[in-house]
């Protein structure tokens, strides 16, 4: 008390500032940094969740890079990213751009697009899983069968399983992207468009020269967010292929599902941690690269 009493008002303010700041800081350290560093340490250990952890050096990493499944999964993860991000951004921009001009039932249409985003991914994944089933229960294949077209192996194909899973994932994310795009479009001052109209510029040029450049911050935000989303894809794959986790011959398995299986069905926690560290590194590199490329010059 004496010590505190001897402080000046300025010093007391500092003490109080740090006292309040300490709460979120400690909380953040405990729930963010401690587990993160623990996971990094675990990636150099062997642990089956039951016994003691033992140090194994870089064994987990050498095993990982020699594992053909890992490379298959790594490739899948990037296919999800490289197909998912551009397709979803293109579709959502086209919808947002046109929806922005629609006055008729604007709110209702926007709500309809946003609806899938609010739906639980698990429920949605199971619904699509049912759509994709072969005859006699699958919706798509039953429709094909009634018009006499042979059924299509959606999920039970090494070629088509991944796109089949990606489709609902893209669809579910559209609502969010459309809303963000529309907010971005609304933020562009009308004066630019008025000036363009006075100068007699066509709508195509307006789009390329005014709308898109001014939407850049929005696009950067959505690219980063959707990339991270597709790199971490899990729920859709897990729920649509739970009979054969990761699809036929690992054709749909993303990295996160491999991590989950290694950790919670093989109980090889160290190996799973090593995969997590790799995923973290990839996410970091991809995000930083995107921010660098799309920064304001």
């Amino acid at each position: 008390m004496n010590f505190y009493g001897a402080l000046t008002i300025k010093q007391k303010q500092v003490v109080w500032a740090w006292t309040f700041l300490a709460v979120p800081a400690i909380f953040y350290c405990l729930i963010r940094f401690y587990p993160t560093f623990n996971a990094i340490a675990l990636s150099f250990q062997e642990w089956n969740l039951l016994g003691a952890r033992t140090w194994t050096g870089i064994d987990n990493y050498t095993k990982l890079f020699a594992d053909p499944v890992f490379w298959k999964v790594f490739k899948n993860t990037f296919i999800y990213l490289l197909l998912g991000t551009p397709i979803s951004l293109l579709i959502s921009f086209v919808i947002a751009y046109n929806l922005d001009k629609v006055r008729f039932m604007h709110g209702t249409i926007r709500a309809l697009y946003f609806l899938p985003f609010m739906t639980s991914t698990v429920a949605m994944a199971w619904l699509w899983r049912w759509f994709y089933q072969p005859v006699p229960i699958g919706l798509f294949n039953n429709a094909l069968a009634t018009i006499g077209i042979p059924q299509f192996e959606f999920l039970n194909s090494t070629t088509w399983a991944l796109p089949s899973i990606l489709a609902p994932a893209v669809w579910a994310g559209l609502g969010f992207q459309i809303i963000i795009f529309m907010a971005g479009l609304r933020a562009i001052p009308q004066t630019y468009y008025e000036a363009a109209r006075i100068d007699g510029v066509g709508s195509w040029t307006t789009l390329w020269r005014i709308t898109l450049p001014l939407l850049k911050p929005t696009i950067v935000f959505l690219v980063v967010l959707s990339s991270i989303g597709f790199l971490r894809i899990f729920d859709q794959v897990f729920n649509m292929t739970s009979n054969n986790p990761g699809g036929p011959l690992n054709s749909t398995k993303p990295l996160v599902l491999m991590i989950y299986e290694t950790a919670f069905s093989s109980f090889d926690m160290g190996y799973a941690a090593a995969q997590t560290v790799v995923l973290f590194t990839v996410l970091l590199i991809v995000s930083l690269t995107q921010l660098y490329i799309m920064r304001d010059k």
Binding site: P134, P136, N141, A145, G148, I149, P150, N243, N244
Partner: peptide, 17 residues
């Protein structure tokens, strides 16, 4: 089987899963 040759009832179920 149905007209298109799709199975609508199986004799025995299979699945290693």
């Amino acid at each position: 089987k149905d007209g298109s040759g799709n199975l609508t009832q199986v004799g025995i179920t299979t699945g290693m899963n």
